[in-house]
Amino acid sequence: MKELKVSSVGMVYNVPKSDDVIALNDVSFELEAGRLLTLLGPSGCGKTTLLNILAGFLAPTSGTVELGGQQITKPGPDRGMVFQQGALFEWLSVEQNIAFGPKMNGASKSETKPMVEELLHTVGLAGFGDKQIYELSGGMQQRVALARCLANDPDVILMDEPLGALDALTREKMQGLILKLWQETGKTVILVTHSVEEALYLGDRLFVMAPRPGRIERDYNLPFAEIGLKVEPRELKASPDFIERREEILSLIWEMEEQIMGHGS
């Protein structure tokens, strides 16, 4: 498994007739293989920019990103991506969506068939292989997106607010699924979220990011993802440790928001 190394990454957007926007300023960190990192912060803190750089969709204006010693310059099948919604291919069935990656790399249907069946089972969609995407609920669609990503057996899974469009109940179920998949596959996962609770519950490492310029404000190592695999999620989220951390981070983000508001007026 490969380690992720981010060295002094900066990202500056040139805005015509206005000041340049510093989306990321000198961001450095290392992430061992098999960690689940969550990125949290107010809008404009550069968390999605960072994710897009890791995916290879954006080239940073300064600094480098390496995965297993190999510099990242463009998207590739070693880094799978799960989007918030709308990234599935509506013209393909559930099965065909999941088999898309292997098929692009030349796998035949007989090769992908057993793997697709297994993945459907893993994400809790056994028997839904023949369904069309538009026949599925939002939660089920995200399950397909997860399976499609896993089908390529990537080293890193990047998730851009994967549960952001789901209702609260579905969201909790999907959080459980992500934890389960993380444990079973042992893959490195980086997940962007707006929800403090989600970031705490899922992350075994958590970056609280700050805006203007976009940077990593706090770097937490957290126990909850490990505990969450054994304990009932509701119970965990109601535990004093969890609540304490949640309040700490919430007030941190509140402060940032206040600063932005002050800055803006």
Binding site: F57, F100, N105, R148
Partner: peptide
């Protein structure tokens, strides 16, 4: 969709 496709190889 485009980004997902490139990410899938």
């Amino acid at each position: 969709k485009i980004r997902a496709a490139y990410s899938l190889g």
